[in-house]
Design a protein around this nucleic acid. Structure first.
Lengths: 193, 193
DNA sequence: GTCTATAGATGGATAGAC
DNA sequence: GTCTATCCATCTATAGAC
C-alpha cells in the first residue's frame, strides 16, 4: 500500500500544494520523498509523467476522504451529504488545503498542457455526476437537465471560491458562507414555484 | 500611448495566454515584442516585475472593453448591463480568450507568489463592487449584504466556468448558458418571496 | 530497484558599448 | 533607451555501478 511509489506521489502532492506545479523540482521532490532523482525517472519516465500520476493520486485520495464512512454508520441524509461534500474542500486543514491547492494547480496547468486535460475532464465528470445524483435525491421532482446544470454551477462555484481563498483574497469562513448560501439558492431554484 | 512599454505588455499578455505564466520566457517575450531582453529588464527590473505590470495592464484593458460605450449612447438597462458584463468574459474571440486566460493564470500564480496577491485582490474588489452596484439597480429593495454575496458568487462562478472552458472541459456555449441561468437564480434569490 | 554522478539544455539576469 | 554578448545558476534527464 504505502509503497515507495506512493511515498513519491504523496511528496509530489505536498510539494505542488506548497510551490505549485511550476515550482515542482524533481530534485526537491526526490529529497522530500527520501529517494534519488534517478528513481523518480525510473518510475515516472519524465516530469509530465509525475504530474499525471499525481493528478490521479489526488483524485483517488479526494474520492476517499469524500466518501469514507464507517461501515456501520447509516447512510447520511442527502441534503447533509451535499453540504458536507461541497464544503469539505473549503477547510483550512493541511490535508484539504493541500488537495485543493494541488487540484487548482493542475486545472490551471491543463489549460496549457493537453496531456493533463483528459484525466482532469474525467475526474470533473465523476464529481459533477456525484453532485447531480445528490441533488436528485434532495429534489426528486426536478428535471434531470436542471439537476445537471445546478451541479455544474455548484462545483464550478466551489472551484472559483477555492481559488480566491487560496490566493488570499477571501477568508475561509466567508467562502464557506457563500458556498452554503449558493447551495440553498440552487436548491430553491429546483423547486417549481 | 502605444509606447514601447505598452508593446511589451501586450506581448506579455499574449504570451501568458498562449503559454501560461509558467511558460513565459523573457527571451521569448523579447522576440514577441521585437525588443531585446536587456530592455525588458531595464523597464521591469525582473520577471516578477513583468508579471505585476502585466496584471495591471490586463485589468485596465478589461475595464475598458467592459465599460466602453459611444458618448452618445444611452446608459444601458441594468439587467442587460449585468448580463453583458458577466458574459463578456465567456466569448471565444482572440482578445477575450487572451484576457481570460491571462487572468486565470495570474490568479493561479498568486497562490504561490505573494507579490501578485495585493494587486489581484484589489482588482477583484473593484470587479465585485461593480457587479454589486448593478445588482442593486436591478433589485433596489434587496439588502446590501445580500447584494454583495450574490456578486461575490457570480464573479467566482464566472472564474470557475472560465477555467473549465479554457482547460477544455466545458464548451463555451454551455458555459454561457450556465452563467445566464446562474444570474437568474441569484436575481430571484434577491426578491423576497 | 535504487543510487551517484554528470551531461546537456535552458533561462534569468547583468555588464558595457552605443 | 536600447542592444549585444555572456555569465552563472538551475533543472531535466540519462548513464552506469551496485
Amino acid at each position: 500500500m504505502a509503497s515507495r511509489n506512493t511515498r513519491i506521489l504523496e511528496a509530489a502532492a505536498r510539494l505542488i500544494a506548497r510551490r505549485g506545479v511550476r515550482g515542482l523540482r524533481v530534485e526537491e521532490l526526490a529529497a522530500e520523498a527520501g529517494v534519488s532523482t534517478g528513481l523518480i525517472y525510473y518510475h515516472f519516465k519524465d516530469r509530465t509523467g509525475i504530474l499525471r500520476h499525481t493528478l490521479e493520486f489526488i483524485n483517488d485520495r479526494a474520492e476517499r476522504y469524500t466518501t469514507l464512512r464507517a461501515p456501520d454508520e447509516p447512510p447520511p441524509a442527502p441534503r447533509e451529504e451535499l453540504g458536507r461534500i461541497l464544503l469539505l474542500e473549503l477547510q483550512d486543514t493541511a490535508e484539504v488545503r493541500e488537495n485543493s491547492a494541488a487540484w487548482g494547480e493542475l486545472r490551471a496547468s491543463a489549460v496549457f498542457d493537453p496531456a493533463l486535460r483528459e484525466d482532469l475532464a474525467r475526474a470533473t465528470l465523476v464529481w459533477v455526476r456525484e453532485v447531480t445524483a445528490l441533488l436528485g435525491e434532495v429534489s426528486p421532482t426536478a428535471p434531470a437537465a436542471k439537476l445537471a446544470a445546478a451541479a455544474e454551477r455548484l462545483t464550478a462555484l466551489l472551484e472559483g471560491l477555492s481559488m480566491r481563498w487560496l490566493s488570499g483574497g477571501l477568508a475561509i469562513d466567508r467562502a464557506r458562507t457563500l458556498m452554503e448560501d449558493g447551495i440553498e439558492a440552487e436548491l430553491s431554484g429546483l423547486e417549481p414555484r
